[in-house]
Design a protein around this nucleic acid. Structure first.
Lengths: 341, 341
DNA sequence: CTGTTAGCGCATTCAT
DNA sequence: ATGAATGCGCTAACAG
């Protein structure tokens, strides 16, 4: 019951090892009859290439890495990561490439240590860089290490010369659709609970909202920073709703905070959506949880992950990979937004 | 800037490759002075063992695998998996072992295919088997393949002879604490929305509730099966609350369904907890989301994952690993349970 | 078209 | 205490 090797197949088929290797790798130099016989024996013996041997020889690990840098309990209720992982996995599925996951605290330095080790060990062929900050040290480090990476972010000016491909999300279209929806419903005082200022995409969203407000002739959109957690989301919501002239619509940068806000509004005696409209960003199943369900900009995170995996595969393969902007798929209107009464 | 190998270190230090290997692996046969010099050079060059080469030589992949068999969108909002992954990762962290993740639909056969391939390729040293069914084919298959595995379930009689270690969760203590809490509050008509009947732990919980009901002299605990999703949880909740003589307390097998039930109760005009108490099982951060927050049996899933990883590591190492029962950590009382008014 | 041979980087046995 | 030689299983250059 031991694992068969190429030598075993060669012996059974009465040919050389290299003939077997060539046949199995579908390259010329083997007659069709021999090739068929070899495949038959490989099948019969249940042969698969030993991944370590193949990796050593080919100088490929057939593994890509993803480091998740958030607190476990927080990550567990943040749908983004699992959807991303699913998307990556789905795209990888066809190929023989696997996904290695690493969970660390929110410490970029520790994350960089992992990249160094992975690169030195040749443990992975490439990585995904998520939660990108402005001036993020991980990008330069991966390039320095020669570790292929896809950066899940817009390419900012400072990174213009990097050879790594960037995968961004087009926020502008989504934000305009969102603001249009609210304006159509009669809202003019919109406020927003955003993610951390350090994130590149937070800045992108900031700018998009400023542009949209100007375009629709709205007053400035008040904004409180948060860290995507339910607690901070609640704190921020209370701060905004406790203002002198509270907004009539609240926009959240992720579902978790928006769902929590539904509860906070009720605690404050505000009827949603009659007195307060709430809009979220990702549109995971979390949005369907509360009553009313949360209107949300739909972001196809699974698709985003798939795209990222495809880009990384091509980048690893040595292809020239262009930056890509992933679209926001539009607004899913549910019960949390409505006309002002 | 190429990756240094043992040969490079040997050259720099002016010794043989095997001397370097011996020194780096902390085994006798090298003088302390030479050893120190070798370490210095290895450090200076930023050397790490090439993982493919090491794997090939040692016949270890230094990788363990976890197959997640649920729909991506559902998995994304189910905190259990991320917590489990975090726990496994945390335990692995110290060692050089990585975690490979695979996402497939809810198809055990496809999952088994993956185990076959992993085993044949020697891609992983072992796997975790989660969501265990009664008479689960994956267990026998892993044993047949000689693929070390930890089974995240109680060892049922039919599996008595398996050599794989089982890691179960002690449900009895938790269920008794839960029922005690409800009885103390004056509840006598309890109902439960459970997970799928096919899962081993669902049956375990069933029996524990029957025992607890008997112990406390309660009428039979009505029960509706579900699949852990919000929709099915809602359906089940409505079915139970629409009964002739509806229960005054509802128990859910996971947080997602319990959180959804808070909403459903409100839609039905039932005040929680004055008219209906709600209790959940896992106690992830989801429980803090609704208002009132959900009382829940706390299950330390991160700790469960860590224990599983430790057991798997020892099992892979060839140690005799005893089955282990992980405790339920007790009841976290929040606003969703209270005395009947 | 087929077979021989030499690495890939490390661990390890055996000789020195 | 140290060095030379071999094997892990596969790929690929090379020769036949």
């Amino acid at each position: 019951m031991k694992r068969p090797t190429i030598s075993d197949i060669a012996e059974h088929a009465g040919v050389s090892k290299s003939a077997v290797s060539f046949a199995l790798n579908n390259r010329p130099g083997v007659s069709d009859r021999t090739r068929a016989r070899i495949f038959a024996y490989a099948d019969a013996l249940g042969w698969y290439p030993n991944s370590a041997a193949r990796s050593l020889s080919a100088a490929r690990a057939d593994l890509v890495g993803l480091v998740l840098a958030r607190k476990p309990s927080v990550m567990a209720v943040e749908p983004f990561f699992m959807e991303l992982v699913s998307g990556i996995e789905g795209q990888l599925g066809a190929s023989e490439v696997g996904l290695v996951l690493k969970v660390v605290g929110e410490d970029l330095q520790r994350e960089i240590e992992i990249y160094r080790r992975w690169a030195a060990q040749r443990r992975v062929d490439g990585v995904f860089i998520a939660d990108v900050r402005t001036d993020d040290p991980r990008i330069a480090e991966c390039e320095r290490l020669g570790l292929p990476a896809v950066v899940l972010s817009r390419r900012v000016a400072a990174e213009a010369q990097r050879r790594l491909p960037f995968l961004s999300v087009d926020v502008r279209t989504g934000v305009f659709a969102l603001v249009d929806h609210l304006v159509t419903l009669g809202h003019r005082h919109i406020a927003r609970v955003s993610g951390p200022a350090a994130m590149v995409h937070t800045g992108d969203r900031d700018r998009a909202f400023v542009a949209a407000a100007r375009r629709y002739g709205l007053p400035e959109i008040a904004r409180v920073r948060s860290d995507y957690t339910g607690e901070q989301g609640e704190r921020a919501t209370r701060a905004l709703l406790g203002a002198e002239r509270p907004p009539t619509a609240l926009v959240f940068d992720n579902d978790l905070m928006a769902v929590r806000a539904i509860v906070v509004a009720r605690q404050l005696g505000l009827r949603v959506p009659d007195e307060l409209s709430i809009i979220s960003w990702e549109d995971s199943l979390l949005c369907e949880l509360p009553q009313p369900a949360v209107t949300s900009l739909h972001l196809d995170v699974v698709g985003l992950g798939a795209t990222a995996a495809d880009m990384l595969a091509r980048h690893i393969n040595g292809d020239e990979v262009a930056d890509h902007a992933f679209p926001t798929a539009g607004l899913v209107v549910r019960g949390s937004t409505g006309p002002l009464l």
